[in-house]
Amino acid sequence: MAFKDLLALVRSPRQRSVFDIAGALAAEHGAGLSMLHLVELPAPVTEPFGEAIWTELCAAARDRAGEQLARIAARLKQCDPGAELRQLETFTGADDEALAYEMMHADLVVMERPGDAIARAALETALFKSGRPLLLTPPDWRAPLGRRIMVAWTPTREAARALADAAPLIERAEAVFIVTVDGRPSRFAETGPGVDIAAHIARRGIDVEIRPVERGGRSIEQTLLEEAETMGADLIVMGGYGHSRLREVVFGGVTRTLSETSPLPVFMSH
């Protein structure tokens, strides 16, 4: 199994980790790579005086975008000469149908860990509207990924989706760990946490190690990141937003924290 179509999202030519990782994945899987330069315009203004200023600001933003596009094209050519490059304009609060449309025609969306509202919106579009998985890269990531994969497992549809979508990576891994946090034996089976999913993955001919972990006063996010460091993981696979976004904004949550701060690449589906 291999990825056939990758979509890499960049805000600027400086997002090196996206170029590196998308290029490496495309080479390893023999996948076609498309890059989408996401250009932020100021939000539209309709009031007459404001509209004139907005038009000027847009023109300036488009000029800058044009310069960036040239540098993005040059960098892209180095990592994958056959890759396609497109530009998509957006603004805060924009309708994301066009972006969702782009994403759903790929097997995997790759973007840097979100650092601003536009990027966070793109992350949510990927998770909630595209039906495709998302790979988030830490800005300074240079190494290969997917040699040692930590699957953060709960028996939920989001985690099941992420695991299924990550199959091309899991099949190529040297080591795969199923990590459960404060897991309890399921109500529906007499097996311990992670045992059933490990058996399912084993049917693909992949050996996994089950690592049940107790929080012991730490947050779930902290527990997962510390465990990932202990096992030397270079990729986390997890379900995204098993709890509602609003709840995570208000109370904090695993998806929000890991997507914004994880020092490792994170592969997620919703």
Binding site: P155, T156, R157, A160, A164, R187, F188, A199, H200
Partner: peptide
């Protein structure tokens, strides 16, 4: 529903 879902999410 939950019992069915648990079984289904462990299949391809």
């Amino acid at each position: 529903e939950d019992a069915v879902a648990y079984n289904a999410l462990h299949a391809d």
